[in-house]
Design a protein around this nucleic acid. Structure first.
Length: 102
DNA sequence: CTGCTGACGGTTC
DNA sequence: GGAACCGCCAGCA
């Protein structure tokens, strides 16, 4: 496994999200050093999400909604609820559970 | 090498 | 308030 620096930075940023919190794509990208890299975060999660042992379920879009649909969405919701993340609505996490990088 | 795609976000109209 | 674009760039065909 040899990734580009960008991928490594993004992976690192994703791993910083603590248990019981969620984070948006944009924030992860910013934390990794790419202010406009949301789409790259998408790529990383999509292609390496399950392979790299990432807390992929802690990443949602800025509105706090699950960006996946169908099967993946269900699994993500289950995993988050298991961590104590609250939902204000089906498929939408409580804004208070958002983690903000320093 | 070229073009298309993607679990998004911000701006504009 | 919401739809429509544009930017961003690593992978893969």
């Amino acid at each position: 496994m040899s990734y580009t620096q960008m991928t490594i930075n993004i992976l690192g940023a994703i791993r910083e999200v603590p248990y019981g919190f969620v984070c948006s794509y944009g924030e992860v990208a910013r934390a990794a050093g790419y202010p406009n890299g949301a789409r790259q975060v998408v790529r990383v999660l999509s292609s390496l999400g399950s392979k790299e042992n990432l807390p992929w379920h802690r990443i949602v879009n800025k509105k706090g909604e699950i960006a996946l649909s169908g099967d993946g969405e269900f699994e993500q919701i289950v995993r988050l609820e298991l961590e104590g993340v609250k939902f204000v609505k089906e498929g939408k996490v409580d804004p208070n559970c958002f983690y903000h990088y320093k």
